[in-house]
């Protein structure tokens, strides 16, 4: 019974999470709807034309793909240092969300690249490091699947996530050194036209709320899954 003790804490987490999720979900839907409406009805960008509409999916996906990894790395560090079970669960529950945003970033980028650069894929620095980030996510998910015991899998995955977080800046820098033809990021330097910036920032907020909502739901699922595992083990022993 001693190893069931930590469930007391997730119990409190679940109560708070269940109370917050409906509001977060509502906020996500409102922000998403407003951002899409403003973005899709805005006049098309003078230089890039209609394809720049893809930006409203591409840029939030790209920012979220890195934000989620950052959150995953912090949660992994907390899990390793303080052995907090919720941190472990948060890191695991983030992985699929992050991998998905990385994939949508790559797909939307390639759909944007075709009409503007004339190619679906270029071995440009940011595309390449985004692709590597996707592979890192896949490796992280794979190690969770490979080790059955959640405690051990969690610590192995945390070590991998931290190794990746040290490596990703180096990878990004090295790829940039290797090749660059991507346009510089201008969103947060105030250069973007407010007509584009309002829907873009709204959608970014929407994607972030989506991430938190789904993360809480996935964490709950993971907690329930672990309880099932514990109870089955106890029944098998009885």
């Amino acid at each position: 019974m001693a190893n069931l003790h930590w469930l007391a804490n997730p119990g409190r987490f679940l109560r708070i999470s269940n109370a917050v999720v409906p509001y977060l979900a509502g906020l996500t839907v409102v922000l998403l709807a407003y951002g899409l409406w403003r973005g899709l009805t805005a006049p098309h960008d003078a230089t890039q034309g209609a394809p720049a509409t893809i930006m409203y999916m591409h840029v939030p996906s790209a920012i979220m793909s890195m934000t989620v990894y950052g959150g995953m790395a912090v949660a992994s560090a907390v899990a390793l240092i303080w052995k907090h079970p919720l941190a472990d669960i948060a890191a695991k529950s983030s992985a699929l969300i992050g991998a998905g945003f990385t994939a949508t970033c790559l797909i939307s980028g390639s759909m944007w690249g075709r009409p503007t650069w004339g190619t679906y894929w270029a071995w440009d620095a940011r595309l390449t490091s985004e692709l590597v980030l996707f592979f890192v996510y896949l490796g992280y998910i794979a190690i969770w699947q490979a080790i059955e015991d959640p405690q051990r899998a969690g610590r192995a995955a945390a070590i991998l996530a931290l190794a990746g977080s040290v490596n990703l800046p180096i990878i990004h820098y090295s790829v940039e050194w290797w090749n660059t033809l991507h346009q510089p990021a201008g969103l947060l330097q105030g250069k973007t036209d407010p007509v584009l910036a309002v829907p873009l920032l709204t959608l970014l907020a929407a994607f972030f709320c989506f991430y938190v909502t789904v993360l809480l739901l996935r964490m709950e699922r993971e907690i329930v899954g672990r309880k099932i595992r514990q109870l089955r083990l106890l029944q098998a022993q009885a």
């Binding site: 098309h44 034309g49 209609a50 394809p51 509409t53 893809i54 999916m57 591409h58 996906s61 699929l96 969300i97 998905g100 994939a103 949508t104 797909i107 939307s108 759909m111 944007w112 075709r114 009409p115 989506f210 909502t213 789904v214 739901l217």
Partner: peptide, 22 residues
């Protein structure tokens, strides 16, 4: 402006992924 082939699949894939995940 004739770019529907690139724009709508992007929206369908991104929003579709989000809906699927939920």
């Amino acid at each position: 402006d004739g770019y529907a082939f690139y724009i709508w699949p992007t929206y369908i894939v991104t929003l579709g992924f989000m809906i699927w995940l939920v």
